[in-house]
Design a binder for these strands. Sequence first.
DNA 1: TCCCAGGTCCTAC
DNA 2: GTAGGACCTGGG
Length: 311
Amino acid sequence: MGYPTESIAKGVPFNPLFTFECGQAFRWKRLSQTSEDWLGIILGNLVRVKGDSLRVLGRAEQDASRTDAFDLRKYFSLEHDLDQILSSLPKDPFLISAVKEYYGLRILRQDPWECIISFLCSINCNIPSIKLKIENLCRRFGTRIESGVMDGEYYSFPEANSLAGAEKRELLSCKLGFRWKYVRYVSKKVAKGELKLGSLSRSSYHTACDELISEASDKTLGVGPKVADCVCLFSLGMLEAFPIDIWMIRCLMSQYRDLIGFCSKKVPNQLPPRRYQKWAEIMRSHFGSSAGYAQQYLYMKMRNSWRVHSK
DNA sequence: TCCCAGGTCCTAC
DNA sequence: GTAGGACCTGGG
């Protein structure tokens, strides 16, 4: 294949393991457990990241129209000055240890379309289960990518039109469960141009959230505050977004209880919308304009320490 | 067999 | 406005 090898992040802090396994993206696969060798698919391009070098191995034929938007510097958010961002965060002990432990985690700038569908798949699911659903969708509705180099089959993420036209039983066969109607509803909105994901990045964070959640007073089925925050943070470059999931609730309850001013000792497993907004706003003003970075480091710390703790 | 998972929606107060 | 339950399914 005649694609050049590029250096992804020479001199830039970048840890593929933390970046790809922190639950922001679901299609990166580690090829070797002993080295940093990863395979991912970005806008129909099969991409290999090995050490700090990056190589494009193949492209999906029918995705040619989208390759102009294929910008690896943008995808890996190389314009983010990680050291500057991390040093701008408040110095509380829990966050300091999270940053120390997971240094090199970068927030990616993914395709908003893939991002919104992925996080619809994430609703009430664990990560292996999310990956399975997305993989099923790609195999069923995506386009085969010919690499000629790698073993195995690789598929692009489906186009909005494909999912918008899918039948219920087809989506259910991808193991989407009750999420099938969310996926199809949003796909139709995007396919018809009623939800313009591309232009959202030019909006303010709050405008983008409103647009994603209420979408001109017509509720966007399946997109609540958490999914909207994930889209803002992981695909629109809005670093102030602070998604609050079950792990973040546990984190806030155990580490930032005074800040959120929540009296009950019982850790809730979900937040009513108003409380979600209140807590997210408090954390935004605490962590500042890069609150999303704090959230990701805290998320990693919380998940992994919980796992160790509960063994 | 039960419980849980990167939530959201609907119903009943 | 908000608490409580339902929702598909795979994995522990």
